[in-house]
Design a binder for these strands. Structure first.
Length: 416
RNA sequence: GCCCCGAUAGUGUAGUGGCCUAUCAUGCAGCCUUGUCGAGGCUGCGACCCGGGUUCAAAUCCCGGUCGGGGCGCCA
């Protein structure tokens, strides 16, 4: 057995027993006649205490010279001691360096200095060793679990569709071309076309959680060129039904995240309260609110400036419903003359995703397509993909999506 | 793709034409120190993004590039 305890698992009951621990050497405090080493793994920190007389001159010299963030395996006797952190320490008899860390580190794991996200991403393997960084991924995982549980409970079937596709299925988004043997192919920007086929195939409630790729050259704290999307499609439903699914889904996520007390504490983040039903404001109302603070007229898309004004009144999640037909894709159903059954799902000033009721009449669909000068053989979908990173960002309080993605792909970043 | 702002030791920063042989912290290296937990003390190491230009003189001013931050656009 490589280890007999995790670093965070030592207890009073282990007093005077021999144990073996593995972990990263977080810090060494050498006081001359005695030294303290902090050994860390994902469960916590154990203090190794090295009284020079007990461990011997030679061991003392070698063991206190090990570079920070090296990986160690250490065996010794556990001692309960009031002066030790958590009241426990381990006095080593054997200490093996599994891997010595390079020095100096590109990034201090426990240093007081806060590095820029750019530096951190370049040394992500070190960055992730910080509890507040790992916390983002605990929250992400909590959301992931909640999404699957919830949608399954509501009768949605999880599906996986191809990520290598033959042609640009949508007119708008730039795709990444890839070489597929001797043909050109693309990385999928959305599962929409396949979801569409599944609806026809009788799987009338499906969802997919998977990667999506968009070759857009934007550079914002919210956009990535590769992201994990939560994509939902349901038949026999109108825009209200879809909003119902979305708000219940988000409420389940909030509930699940609120149980991640340790991660939230590390992030200094209060759990988000989601009270159902979420507010629904119409586009017309949104324009009225926004026009007091922003230069905006009916028929305009809502700028960041406009949504900030709205966010002053709606602090959490909410829907903006009944958008002008002209601002929504051709496949969204009309409501009256100028309005549509399309909605945006918002968190404060940020658009999380959008959705709506689709036009199911093929003739009408083709007419609307031609009006927009598009090819009628293309189809739409009920719900724009939900970006995982965005949910994680909101629930963790991150200022940049890159925080919530292990190895983000953006305009300039392809490694690590 | 457009606009505004920025780039200085491993990391984070100070420095607005000569006082820069470039500040401070952290780190790293060495020495001292038997209860550290943001350990402490002493000594040392280490940097002006790249390419042009202006000037007697450039980290500092100008032009181009690269990269980063914010906003916009794009994301039917």
């Amino acid at each position: 057995m490589l280890q007999t305890r995790r670093c965070g698992e030592l207890s009073e009951a282990d007093d005077d027993t021999e144990q073996t621990l593995c972990g990263w050497l977080q810090e060494t405090r050498n006081l001359g006649g005695i030294a303290f080493l902090q050994l860390r793994d994902s469960t916590g920190i154990a203090q190794l205490t090295l009284p020079k007389k007990k461990v011997g001159e030679d061991n003392f010299k070698v063991w206190t010279a090990i570079a920070r963030e090296s990986t160690l395996r250490v065996t010794g006797t556990v001692k309960a001691n009031q002066e030790a952190p958590n009241g426990l320490e381990l006095v080593p008899t054997e200490l093996e360096v599994l891997n010595a860390a390079a020095t100096p580190l590109p990034l201090g794991v426990v240093d007081r200095i806060e590095s820029e996200i750019e530096t951190r991403l370049n040394a992500r393997y070190l960055d992730l060793r910080r509890p507040e960084v790992a916390a983002f991924f605990r929250i992400r995982a909590a959301i992931s679990g909640a999404v699957h549980n919830h949608l399954r409970r509501e009768g949605f079937l999880e599906v996986q569709t191809p990520k290598i596709i033959a042609s640009a299925t949508e007119g708008g988004t730039a795709l990444f071309p890839v070489q597929y043997f001797d043909r050109e192919a693309y990385l999928a920007q959305s599962p929409q076309l396949y979801k569409q086929v599944l609806m026809s195939g009788g799987l009338d409630r499906v969802y997919e959680v998977g990667p999506a790729f968009r070759a857009e050259e934007h550079n914002t704290p919210r956009h990535l060129n590769e992201f994990i999307s939560i994509d939902i499609e349901m038949s026999w439903a109108d825009d209200d039904d879809v909003m119902g699914v979305m708000e219940r889904l988000v409420a389940t996520c909030a509930e699940s995240v609120s149980q991640e007390a340790e991660a939230l504490t590390a992030l200094e983040m209060a759990p988000l309260e989601v009270e159902l039903p979420l507010p629904r404001i119409t586009y017309d109302e949104a324009i009225e609110i926004a026009s007091a603070k922003a230069d905006i007229a009916w028929g305009d898309d809502l700028s960041m400036e406009a949504t900030r004004a709205i966010a002053e009144q709606y602090g959490g999640f909410y829907f903006i419903t009944k958008w002008p037909l002209s601002l929504k894709p051709f496949y969204i159903q009309a409501e009256g003359e100028k309005h549509s059954k399309g909605f945006d799902f918002m968190f404060r000033e940020v658009e999380m995703t959008s959705g709506g009721q689709r036009v199911h009449d093929v003739a009408l669909l083709e007419l609307r397509l031609r009006e927009q000068g598009l090819d009628p053989k293309e189809f739409g979908h009920y719900l724009e993909p939900f970006r995982y990173g965005m949910l994680a960002m909101v629930f963790s309080g991150a200022q940049n999506v890159r925080e919530c993605v292990l190895f983000p792909r953006d305009r300039n970043r392809l490694t690590p």
